[in-house]
Write a protein that binds this DNA or RNA. Structure first.
Length: 430
RNA sequence: GUGGGUAUAGCUCAGCUGGUUAGAGCACUGGAUUGUGGCUCCAGGUGUCGCGGGUUCAAAUCCCGUUACUCACCCCA
């Protein structure tokens, strides 16, 4: 086969879409309970949007974006959701319509990384963005929302990591403090970390190289350097998380790879190894400067995104998808047209009907009805046709009877409404 | 981008230090039951052994190259 899906981009086959729907339903319901409404923004944005908001020297911008030029416009397929949503917020002057906006989104993101376990080039995120509230009450509430969704999905093995890197000014001070801490010992650092000393010393902190471990442990932490307002904000966040009874760990080494964050940072990390070397299920933080840097007023904002493939990998197996109510089997060409009409009338009555007019044996068709977990199998042969009836077979109860073609939609509708057949058979909800 | 691993039937995989017609399970089809399923039994496979080259009397097996997938680094969802 020479035409395959692009590397790192996967087909989601019908057998898995039930799980996706469950995940999306759970997320939407939780977000809407918290007052969030869905926003849909384009997959393509001006390249400049991501370069300026995510940061020129970040990995995402330096090497992971799908960028191209078309009709003179430099465009990029979105690598994340926040920048586009913030752009939409500013462009539509939403701050003038309401003091606080709660928006959620759902969809594919694209990063041209080398794929690995838990990491794809097209992956899906669901996220929330809250504009107009500086926190920290809403920060805690937002983290609570993420935990709620993850918990409802049946995922329990995770930890909430929280940190604060302060305002942009505090970050600049912190960067300097890290530089003066690491510069004298640069010789003992890993090659990557020596490079990061120049580009972004914050990210030395999440280096996993053993040679960096001691230097990182001795490094100053961001929270130590927070000034009055920043420190109070972070203390408030921790206090509110406690009052929500959300277990969390303060993780001074939590530094995220996007430049736009201010103050609050958080991640939900799985404590299992189901995701290989990856561990983040969801991540987010505050980005108080973004709206203003996009040309809007100084509106504070916070948000998060969850990786849907990663959540799916940790979700417990769901029950089998519901089969059809009726599996309608024809026997012989003369029954085809009447069967088509019967199927259509049954569907009008609200039933899920699958018609099997293959030339295969009755045995093969019944086997298929069974494999699909159909509730009822309907047999329409020439004998039935002559008598104006259809044979109805309850696959779970091993009973069969005839009903007139005329009466079938009403009779079968009633029968199916009576409830599921005995255990182990019939339809189940996913 | 840099490394490691893998590549045999639709799927999951056996196939030993090279040896003649390349196997199993699952799935699928037919039959046992001329129109009755899940269990059982019987039967059914012409598969570019990823691709190209090399070594050899002989290559799925050894060597080289190449492509794809995968895992790890990096970074993140």
């Amino acid at each position: 086969m020479d035409l395959r899906a692009v590397r790192g981009m996967k087909d989601i086959l019908p057998e898995h879409v039930g799980q996706w729907h469950r995940l999306e339903r759970t997320f939407r319901a939780a977000a809407e309970r918290h007052g969030y409404a869905e926003v849909r923004t384009p997959l393509l944005e001006p390249t400049e949007l991501f370069v300026r908001q995510i940061g020129e020297s970040t990995d995402v911008v330096e090497k992971e974006m799908y960028s191209f030029e078309r009709h003179g416009d430099a465009l990029t397929v979105r690598p994340e959701g926040t920048a586009g949503v913030a752009r939409a917020y500013v462009q539509n002057a939403v701050q003038g319509k309401e003091p606080v906006s709660r928006w959620y989104y759902l969809g594919p993101m694209f990063r041209a990384e080398r794929p690995a376990k838990g990491r794809l080039r097209q992956f899906h995120q669901a996220g929330c963005e809250l504009f107009g509230d500086p926190g920290p009450v809403c920060d805690a509430e937002l983290i609570g929302l993420v935990a709620e969704v993850v918990g409802e999905l049946g995922i329990g093995d995770y930890r909430i990591h929280v940190n604060s890197i302060g305002s942009k000014a505090a970050q600049a001070r912190y960067r300097e403090a890290l530089r003066s801490h690491f510069a004298p010992i640069a010789g003992s650092l890993s090659e990557d970390s020596r490079r990061r000393l120049q580009t972004n010393p914050l990210r030395i902190l999440d280096s996993k190289s053993p040679e960096d471990a001691a230097a990182i442990a001795a490094a100053p932490t961001a929270t130590e350097l927070l000034d009055g307002d920043d420190a109070a904000h972070f203390q408030g966040l921790c206090r509110y998380l406690e009052s929500l009874e959300l277990p969390f760990v303060v993780d001074p080494k939590l530094v995220r790879g996007l430049d736009y964050y201010t103050r609050t940072l958080f991640e939900l990390r799985t404590t299992t190894d189901e995701l290989g070397a990856q561990s983040a299920l969801a991540g987010g933080g505050r980005y108080d400067g973004m709206v203003e840097s996009l040309g809007g007023p100084a509106v504070p904002a916070i948000g998060f995104a969850m990786g849907l493939e990663r959540l799916l990998a940790l979700m417990p197996e769901a029950a089998a998808a519901a089969g059809p109510h009726c599996y309608l089997v024809t026997l012989g060409e003369p029954t085809h047209a009447p069967a088509l009409r019967l199927a259509s009338r049954l569907r009008q009555a609200g039933l899920r009907v699958e018609l099997d007019a293959r030339a295969a044996s009755l045995k093969a068709k019944l086997r298929r009805a069974d494999g699909l977990r159909a509730s009822l199998c309907l047999l329409l042969g020439e004998g039935e046709l002559a008598r104006g009836v259809v044979t109805v077979k309850d696959l779970a109860r091993h009973e069969q009877w005839e009903v007139s073609l005329e009466e079938a939609p009403r009779s079968l509708g009633t029968r199916l409404a009576e409830g599921p057949p005995p255990a182990g058979a019939g339809s189940r909800d996913g």
